[in-house]
Design a protein around this nucleic acid. Structure first.
Length: 385
DNA sequence: TCTGGGGTCCTAGGACCC
DNA sequence: TCTGGGGTCCTAGGACCC
């Protein structure tokens, strides 16, 4: 989806179309503003990052992930709207339903992205046909998907049609907003290799810096790099993957369903809290996080066994602790108790900026994996010792 | 002027088991 | 006093993604 959160907001505030708008920060009352007026970045003070910026705002140099105070320097007159996740989830459901009606093999990649396996549709009827024919079909299909999404939501999206997920992800980004990009393997040298390595899904900021230190900036340079050297610097698994990725190779399937692995809630405080002086407030927030995790478990129908704590200090250093309990649970009291045990294992010697609670090793109640005792072949194993 | 909230996957060490 | 070769589970941290 193109600038998803911002585009949803523009449906609600069509008069803002064409203006720089960013989504982020907290809902707050700004002194001196008349009720209903939309504040500009200039008027904002406090914590937070941009989650989405309209293309007009991006033209001013602001981007998602950027701190709001920094963004305010670059684009003081950009309008700032708080995120409304309930609304985004609603539109997310709508666009995914619209796509599934046309192309049922859909993999969820978060609120505003999907992969579709279009093979059967592009190669309908069994005959493969010359490349030109497939191209035409792919383009028609992509256009009808875009049409269906617009029909259902009023929003625009960009589509990449290629032989695999890796290339499709890159391709979908090449002609935003509203673009369709179709690539075959033969196009990799001309269309993919000139791009910076950062465009590869899985090469993030750290790997980009390390590659740059090796003199590798583009995907083409990565493709030409000595594989042995990559293994040396990035390890067997990541190094080999990088090399394959640079050549556009990717054999991952489109996964239409997967079970969640963990559920968590966390919050960054308006102001850093002192573990002693703000103890009461911290305790209240901590308990509330546990309650919300328990509610999420209940709503989604899971229980969990591994309870985790996350804590970020004022210097941004982050620590986690977790512990596994005997019986899977969704009880807020048990979760709170376990998380409390975790808390005893971290240093509370400086101010805290974030607190989080997580639960993992999820299962559906009543269908827990068998108890370990039942799985072990005690009788036969004993014979060998 | 610091840097959100929800996730996944990987690595690596240690405990423990046979 | 030294020491194999599997395996699983647990924990902590970190990179990365949307």
């Amino acid at each position: 989806m193109d600038a998803f959160y911002a585009s949803v907001e523009l449906l609600r505030y069509p008069e803002l179309r064409g203006r720089p708008v960013v989504i982020g920060g907290r809902r707050r009352i700004v002194d001196g503003l008349s009720a209903g007026a939309i504040p500009t970045l200039r008027e904002y003070s406090g914590r937070g990052v941009i989650t989405t910026a309209t293309y007009e705002a991006r033209a001013l140099g602001v981007n998602s992930g950027m701190g709001l105070m920094k963004a305010a320097k670059l684009a003081p007159d950009a309008l700032l709207l708080p995120a409304d996740f309930d609304q985004y989830r609603r539109y997310s459901r709508l666009f995914k339903e619209a796509v599934r009606a046309l192309a049922p093999l859909v993999e969820d990649r978060g609120i505003d992205e999907i992969y579709m396996d279009l093979s059967a549709l592009v190669m309908s009827g069994g005959e493969t046909g010359p490349a030109q024919v497939l191209w035409v079909r792919a383009r028609e299909l992509a256009a009808s998907i875009q049409g269906a999404v617009r029909e259902a939501t009023g929003l625009s999206c960009s589509v990449g049609v290629t032989p695999n997920k890796l290339l499709s992800k890159i391709a979908s980004d090449l002609e935003k907003p509203g673009g369709v990009t179709i690539l075959s393997h033969d196009d990799v040298p001309t269309r993919i290799w000139p791009l910076p390595v950062r465009k590869v899904n899985g090469i993030g900021p750290k790997a980009t810096l390390r590659l740059e230190a090796l003199g590798i900036r583009t995907i083409g340079e990565l493709a030409q790099a000595d594989p042995q050297m990559l293994l040396q610097h990035f390890g067997k698994s990541y190094g080999a993957w990088m090399h394959d990725a640079a050549h556009g190779r990717d054999d991952r399937e489109v996964v239409v369903y997967s079970e969640p692995k963990s559920i968590s809630r966390e919050t960054t405080f308006e102001d850093d809290l002192h573990p002693v002086r703000d103890r009461e407030q911290l305790t209240r927030i901590f308990t509330d996080l546990c309650v919300r995790v328990a509610e999420d478990l209940q709503r989604k129908g899971y229980v969990g066994k591994t309870i985790g704590l996350k804590l970020r200090y004022d210097n941004f250093k982050t620590v986690t602790r977790d512990c596994t309990i005997d019986e899977p649970t969704r009880d807020p009291v048990r979760i709170r108790r376990a998380a409390g045990e975790c808390l005893k294992r971290v240093a509370l010697d400086r101010r805290i900026r974030l607190l989080g609670v997580r639960i993992g090793t999820l299962s559906k109640p009543g269908s827990e994996p068998q108890a370990p005792e039942a799985k072990r072949g005690l009788a036969s194993a004993a014979l060998f010792d």
